[in-house]
Simulated assay, not measured.
Amino acid sequence: MFALISGWHHRLNNQAHHGALPFYVLVPALRKKAEMVDISVQPSDLDREQRSSTFNARLEEYWARYSNAEVSTFTFLKAVSHLYGPSE
């Protein structure tokens, strides 16, 4: 899995001229890439040790809503980022 991500990151860096793209050009490019990516991750692939049952339940709920096309890729990623982000 790491090799796939590493290759994707390398291609993205080349397309972004190794960081020479302005932020407002990079963000739409990333969003376009995200919409083209075929998501093949299952909730079981996201399991980590010592995750609470609430965390897993929320993650599976977000995944189900995304899989059923009830929410966009952007909304799904934003919701999941809040789960994985620092607690406030």
Score class of each variant (00 low, 15 high):
L4Q: 13
H18R: 09
N14S: 15
K33D: 09
R31W: 12
V37P: 02
L21Q: 05
L21S: 04
S67Q: 12
L4C: 09
Q50I: 01
S40K: 12
K33T: 02
S72C: 00
S52D: 06
W8D: 04
A16P: 02
A64G: 13
A34W: 01
A64M: 10
S52W: 03
I5F: 14
K33R: 10
E60C: 08
S6H: 04
S44E: 15
S67W: 12
H9L: 11
S44G: 06
A16Q: 06
I5N: 14
P43I: 10
R65D: 15
A57E: 15
I5T: 15
D47C: 01
S6C: 05
R31K: 13
Y24R: 09
H17R: 07
L26E: 12
A20P: 00
H17E: 07
V41P: 00
E70W: 03
T54E: 12
H10R: 06
A57D: 15
W63I: 06
E49K: 05
H10C: 09
A64F: 13
Q42L: 14
E35R: 10
I5L: 13
R51V: 13
N68I: 00
W8K: 02
A29Q: 13
S67K: 12
A34D: 08
F55E: 03
E61M: 05
E70K: 06
H10N: 12
Y62P: 01
D38K: 13
S44M: 05
V37C: 03
S52M: 03
H9S: 08
L26S: 08
E35C: 04
Q50S: 08
N56G: 02
I5G: 14
Q15T: 14
Q15A: 14
K33P: 00
G19H: 00
L46R: 06
E49Y: 05
E70Y: 07
A64H: 15
R65F: 04
W8Q: 05
S6Y: 08
T54K: 08
I5C: 11
I39D: 12
S6V: 02
W63Q: 09
L30P: 04
A34E: 02
E61F: 03
R58E: 15
R31N: 11
S6D: 06
N56T: 09
F55S: 01
I39R: 07
N56K: 11
S72G: 03
R65C: 09
L21E: 09
P28A: 03
E35W: 00
V37K: 06
N68E: 14
L46A: 08
L21K: 04
V71G: 06
V41C: 09
G7P: 03
N68M: 04
P28L: 03
